[in-house]
Design a protein around this nucleic acid. Structure first.
Lengths: 105, 105
DNA sequence: AAATTATTTCAAGGATACTTGAAATATGGA
DNA sequence: TCCATATTTCAAGTATCCTTGAAATAATTT
């Protein structure tokens, strides 16, 4: 992952609504959750939630699947992990000091 | 750490110049590096580098200390670690799936 | 087919962030 | 003191992002 890509991905995480969406999707687990449910859970209008879900999807943090009338979104841990790995291993050279700071002993 | 704070911190990481600065500071180690050196290393004008160093400092990712005429900046791993910990433990509930994705077994 | 439900798209407006270059500040040396 | 060095600050312009509300799309039900 190059710096420009990582910067864009951090940009997608730089919004409280989107972090809340991630939290909701993590709680939902593999079943995922519908766009409308997510909007309700984070207290946003459907339009606003859709805007943020689109950002998360395009970035790869969430994956959406159409199920009849609803859009079901699921978290994509792999992508979040890839960004964390960039920050820790690539950008911070796997610093043991940093690893200690987030429970990686 | 609450979502708004985390979102702001991710915002600070959402810039390729600033990620390059972090990399330079990690390489520099505990001696740190001067603002002018950093500007040269990332290929930015002094003014532009100063703008980004101010953002990193204010966020707590870097710590600056004035030494005579120069400003020496050092990386602050603790703060980066706190943000990673928020994302992994708090936001993603310590998901073992996520941990596996970034080498935390 | 018409109405209902679920979601997205769009345009307009406001807010925030970034770059540039010039000017200001501060320190050290001649 | 005067000049050079190191860095920051500022204003102006540009670009990007976010919110809102209305309209469009799509699928289901009656």
């Amino acid at each position: 992952m190059d710096e420009a890509t990582a910067a864009n991905l951090f940009g997608v995480l730089s919004n409280a609504d989107r972090l809340r969406v991630i939290r909701v999707l993590v709680e939902a687990g593999p079943d995922g959750r519908s766009a409308g449910d997510i909007a309700g859970a984070i207290g946003a209008t459907p339009s606003r939630a859709s805007f943020h879900l689109a950002a998360l999807s395009e970035a790869g943090f969430a994956i959406g699947e159409k199920q009849s009338r609803q859009m079901i979104y699921r978290i994509n841990f792999e992508h979040i992990g890839a960004l964390i790995a960039f920050l820790m291993e690539d950008c911070c050279k796997g610093s043991t000091r940093l690893r200690a700071c987030c429970g990686m002993a």
